[in-house]
């Protein structure tokens, strides 16, 4: 599949990555070459092979419904870029 710079810009928006206009062509090129590489698998007929999300055929273990965590806000917010009154601060969120 061929990708356009527009495709890459859309994907970058989804991924919240900014690509400088001067770099978009090169990034698109490089992504294209990766996609060309992975496109090799399009040649294989996978038919109705069930997709494999996890290599072990195990099933989910369940945790008992117990409160095991205590307040660690001070430790966690000590490494926060911006916090005040126990809240993490971000530029104003508009709904």
């Amino acid at each position: 599949m061929t990708v356009t710079t527009q495709d890459i810009e859309n994907v970058a928006t989804l991924a919240r990555l900014r690509i400088a206009p001067t770099e978009i062509a090169e990034v698109t090129d490089r992504i294209s070459s990766v996609l060309q590489l992975v496109d090799q698998m399009q040649a294989v007929d996978t038919g109705d092979t069930e997709p494999m999300a996890n290599p072990l055929g195990e099933v989910q273990r369940l945790r008992a419904d117990q409160v095991t965590e205590s307040d660690q806000r001070e430790a966690f917010q000590a490494i926060a870029p911006a916090a005040q009154d126990g809240l993490y601060l971000v530029p104003r969120v508009i709904d």
């Binding site: 945790r63 419904d65 117990q66 409160v67 095991t68 965590e69 307040d71 660690q72 806000r73 966690f76 917010q77 009154d85 126990g86 809240l87 993490y88």
Partner: peptide, 21 residues
């Protein structure tokens, strides 16, 4: 009593981020 994926308490309100593991 606890959250879906962690052992933090589920409760309404409270001092912010005190029940965030």
């Amino acid at each position: 009593r606890s959250k879906i994926f962690s052992g933090s308490e589920v409760a309404f309100g409270g001092s912010p981020n005190t029940r965030a593991s």
